[in-house]
Amino acid sequence: MTTPFSYVRPRSVADVISSLEAEGATIHAGGTDLLGCLRDGVYAVDTVVSLGDVEGLAGVRELKDGGLAVGAMTTITDLAGHATVAGRYPGLAQAAAAVASPQLRHQGTVGGNLCQKPRCWYYRGDFPCLRKGGYKCFAVNGENQHHAILGGAQCFIVHPSDLAPALMALDAAAIIDGPAGTRRVAVADLHVAPAEDPTRETVLEPGEVITEVRIPAPPAGLYNSYRKIRTRRSWDFAIAGCALALTLDGDTVRQARVVLAAAAPVPWRSTAAEDVLRGNPLDDAHIRDAAETAMADAVPMTHNAYKVPLFKGMLIEELAKARPR
């Protein structure tokens, strides 16, 4: 049982925003992450603001520019099973299908997936860690086999989302409504690196809510994929993952997005690997070079050096699949 909280069920986004003004108010989208955090006492909540009765937040719609808008309350199941999504952005559908378990995909939402809290066992457990306003990262000298090999600073969580890397590879943006109006933030800019602030995960300000995610039209020749590696194959969070969005002209890479999951505290775009691929044929030499380059800056911790060859091998396999047949 969690500590008591008040519960509000607004009918409109405007009422959601005003409800979020209350001290200690937080959003309930699918609720899977929220209820887990409340039960574990990760953070305290005075008021839960449910999005369940707000009209128009669920579903996928076409944009005039050929892109898609995905409502924040669209379930992961609906995203994974959406024919247009799978047809245009197969990597996004693959990422959605790889999220958690069927039951959690039926309940979890796109907006909630982007805003979920990290799974670090020190953060979730009874440790006064930096991210909870405490004094240090307990993973540094602790059990860090699932932690970051890239981008860690002060705090060494890995971002748990599968959708965020996939959306980032597609240059998607989040539409955020709040007291000051509506703003658009690239998914690439949505998450906060611990070097900047180890106590927050997203750039959302108090009172703000993601209402939609917009994905631009797929460029001609797009190859899009998502690979997730888990310790348990049936369902788990990633220990390594990658989203690819390559634009191919014959076997030459014109544009490349390589975004790593479970590598860093934020979804990790490897621009160095992209630079290796761009303008070059997708042959064995360039694929190996890209995989090596993606891991060049990796700084393993005491128990997660296995991730470096794991990421390299995964990238080699996934890039090879992108070759035209």
């Binding site: 069920r9 309930h28 609720g31 887990g36 449910s50 959690l104 039926h106 309940q107």
Partner: peptide
């Protein structure tokens, strides 16, 4: 008709 975890669902939801 859709399987869900009752432990992760608030009764009011």
């Amino acid at each position: 008709d859709v399987p869900r975890y009752a432990c992760m669902t608030l009764a009011v939801e």
